[in-house]
Design a protein around this nucleic acid. Structure first.
Lengths: 340, 340
DNA sequence: TTGAAAGCGTTACCAG
DNA sequence: CTGGTAACGCTTTCAA
């Protein structure tokens, strides 16, 4: 049988309420009583029952993260591994735990959000990879549920949504300009699924970076992941409108591009320049290094989680709702032609 | 204000107990009453409060996974991304969620396990990367807490521990023999931290595979992760006892070895053969492909999670407690010398 | 400062 | 088949 506060109370000759007070660090408990209770607690190895506490206090101590990928689609994807890793780092030592959920379709995603917030399984949510008109956001706002968006809320007015983001337009513009300056003429963009805001922002930045060029608008869409990118890149590289450089939505997809190029006997960076986003350690795995934009994920996560906990704990918050984390272009061999 | 079963009961003109029965799919409820209740439930958008349910039913619907890594140490590591991904795949659609925890030290690990199981935050645990004498296992067993080990329980007697594992001795032996057959003379092993059972088993297999060779026992230990492996490999490759082939504990670490070799101007597979474990998609990122042993992670996870849920739900279980998932050696360019 | 007691929203037992 | 009711273990208010 589990030890309860009731048991502690009996053993320490106090009321169960007092035990609760001691546990919650209530100041108005006589020191000797407190010591007596604490002694019994440590003797009995008592641990609070979080389920009962949750019911009473309306707090579960759980933060939720929902990822939308096809089954197995997270495999080896460094972005989520990083994200999850940094979130756990942040939460370690705090009274919060991370609950991760994967959904495969938009409809199941909404069902999961519904479940997650209506059932009060988690105290708050971190949203990633949002879409321009994100059902999740509307729903969470309507319910007044604590959440922080990692990404662009895409709102006309002054934002009412807490969000942490990079300036993806600027980052993509800078990366595109870097490719042009490196001597590539036909710079293309391998974007993500249509409607994903981070992808849309980078398309915008790419177009800004291409202004003044007589090159067509070379934008392709593609699902997340290594395999999808490889297959799409194979088609792109065989097409008549073949680009001589590709800016890719993330490193993992860029690795698909590298494989596709290799498969067609194209050399990087001579025949094809490649740059991408995230600056994960995959960049060092490509022989000559992969040029990539660092998003500063640790800082994104710290900012987002910190803010989320404040919202949950209803602490006063100062500063803007939309927080921008700076990016940095890390130039490596995949855009450094030696033939020029 | 949240909608409760009490509210539903009032609106449907039944007792709250009946609402509970309808929700739990109790057969003995008149069809028309049931329909009335269900109608109100869908009208009101009612969702059960999992906290109250947890308190009553003693089930949280949460499965725990605790990972021991230094802060940021999970970054880009495909093994955990895969593991988490497959666990989520398995859990999707079932009434269970995944709770992930990261700890940085042994002592914090024990504290976390204590917290996790004593507070009944999760219904069961999946253990990975166990050590020969694993405190976690002893503790969980003593408490009668449901858990499944992914790895080797290392017990003398008939095992009392549910575990899912590969035959790592055999797998390492096979991989070592493959390297020798490929023409390498001085085959070494880059193992993981000392005491980790999966690492120990592979050391044993390596030694079996090297029997009959006049080569020294070339085993090095190294922390998990890309960076640690790169640094250790740099030392190894510079040492007088330099091997001409390395079997590496996992792909991610193997990538560190690839980088170290590249940094010293060594060619793979000509100057150094490299083989590893996990067969993640990283293997295709190396120019000529990385030879790797597939652990069949999806099957490991399916087996482990399936078993864990059965234990939690106290369903009858047949078959052995220790379940072995077959491995497969996937030969690629990193062990295929063209100079022979 | 301490104790008694009222819930929190369920589940499940026991009558009817 | 249905309703009443007692827990589940805790937090918090209200009296003492």
């Amino acid at each position: 049988m589990r030890v309860t506060q009731q048991d502690i109370a009996r053993l320490a000759n106090v009321s169960q309420a007092t035990v609760s007070r001691v546990l919650s660090g209530d100041a108005r408990v006589e020191t000797d009583i407190k010591d007596r209770v604490l002694a019994v607690i440590s003797e009995t190895n008592y641990q609070i029952d979080v389920r009962a506490r949750s019911l009473r206090s309306k707090r579960t101590g759980l933060i939720g993260l929902v990822v939308k990928r096809p089954p197995g689609g997270l495999n080896d994807d460094p972005f989520f591994a990083n994200l999850i890793s940094h979130i756990m780092d942040f939460l370690a030592g705090r009274p919060y735990h991370l609950c991760v959920e994967m959904v495969s379709s938009a409809s199941s995603q909404e069902a999961v959000y519904d479940e997650l917030l209506r059932t009060r399984r988690v105290d708050g949510l971190i949203l990633v990879e949002s879409e321009a008109r994100d059902e999740r956001i509307l729903r969470l706002q309507a319910e007044g549920f604590p959440f922080v968006l990692i990404g662009n809320p895409v709102e006309e007015r002054e934002s009412t949504i807490w969000s942490v983001d990079n300036d993806n337009v600027l980052a993509a513009k800078t990366a595109t300009e870097h490719l042009r300056e490196a001597g590539y003429q036909r710079v293309g963009l391998l974007a993500g699924p249509k409607g994903i805001t981070v992808s849309d922002d980078r398309i915008e930045g790419y177009r800004q970076g291409m202004s003044g060029s007589d090159c067509d608008d070379l934008v392709w869409h593609c699902d997340f992941g290594f395999i999808a990118a490889r297959d799409t890149a194979s088609d792109i590289l065989r097409s008549p409108s073949r680009p001589d450089a590709l800016l890719v939505l993330d490193d993992f997809m860029a690795m698909g591009v590298v494989l596709a190029a290799r498969g067609q006997g194209l050399f990087i960076p001579e025949d094809l320049g490649v740059a991408s986003f995230n600056d994960s350690s995959l960049c060092d795995l490509f022989e000559r290094g992969l040029t990539s934009v660092s998003l500063n994920i640790p800082q994104i996560v710290r900012t987002a989680c910190g803010r989320l906990l404040k919202i949950i704990e209803e602490k006063p918050i100062y500063g803007p709702r939309r927080m921008i984390i700076p990016t940095e272009l890390c130039v490596r061999g995949s855009t450094t032609r030696r033939d020029l």
